[in-house]
Amino acid sequence: MNNFQYVRAADLSGAAQFASSRDGVSFIAGGTNLVDLMKYSVVHPTALVDLNRLSLHEITDRPEGGVRIGALVTNSNLAYHPVISARYPMLSRAILAGASPQLRNKATTGGNLLQRTRCVYFYDPAVPCNKREPGTGCPAKEGANRILAILGTSVQCIATHPSDMCVAMAALSAIVQVTGPSGDRSVPLADFHRLPGEHPEIDTVLSKGEIITAVDLPATGFAGNSAYVKVRDRQSYAFALISVAAGLEIVDGFITHAGVALGGVAHKPWRSAELEQRLLVGKPANRNTWHDFQTALLDGAQGFGENDFKLKLAPVTLVRALEQAAHEGETI
């Protein structure tokens, strides 16, 4: 870990100003991923701006019926918050399926959105990685890619986004609230993370100095029919090989509204609102529907050797999650 300057931010604008006016500044909140990366010498910030004293710790109701989650709300406080567990149960489940209690007690909502990939090449400064050092290459494509992507990959990068929380938020159509040197803006979660393309070093659409202030959840939380299914290599404390957040609204056996996102398959939570509209909404909540939907959603998926099994695992996980969501509360 390099030496760096440490600054405690007193207000948002000052923090944004500080970060946008010089190079190599990182914001820090929970630090569970950033400190980890600094210790591995993967990132080398010149200064850290500590956001923890800002007033972004609240979960509040929104006038339109949704909920605003302050960026500094910890993963634990979010998952166990009575409003979240009652109205957005798939979000609670997703968060509690990730990391460990100790990490969830520190990790924040904003920080979780900015988690970096767990690709072992990215994490190891001794080897090439286009995401860590653009232009050095991607040994993962022919190497240890068990946990890596099958969708939305590029020649430069096959990294996956490791978050569980983000998968549920994607399915919930969350909106990320951002402030920065050029003012405030709202970014749908679906657009917040990028695909690697030609610039795998850039994970999100945030620009220099921008700070996440909150995540808004819409009123629809799929409290009646939702599921979060995570498949991993051990029974706890492991990143997802495949995860699925599925929320359905079902009336008389037919789907009226749906939100379904996949984790562990791409550089971002994988969701297609268009396919949901076309292949889920208006369709009966049964296995045929799930089959048609998963086939379309996973169209174009490609394995790289070690992760070929995900091509088999992703469809069955999707089907399991949809089936669980559809039958939530029933005794099967």
Binding site: Y6, G31, T32, V35, D36, P101, Q102, L103, N105, K106
Partner: peptide, 9 residues
């Protein structure tokens, strides 16, 4: 609150 002190600055 229980935390990993190794990741706390």
């Amino acid at each position: 609150v229980r935390v990993n002190s190794c990741l706390c600055l």
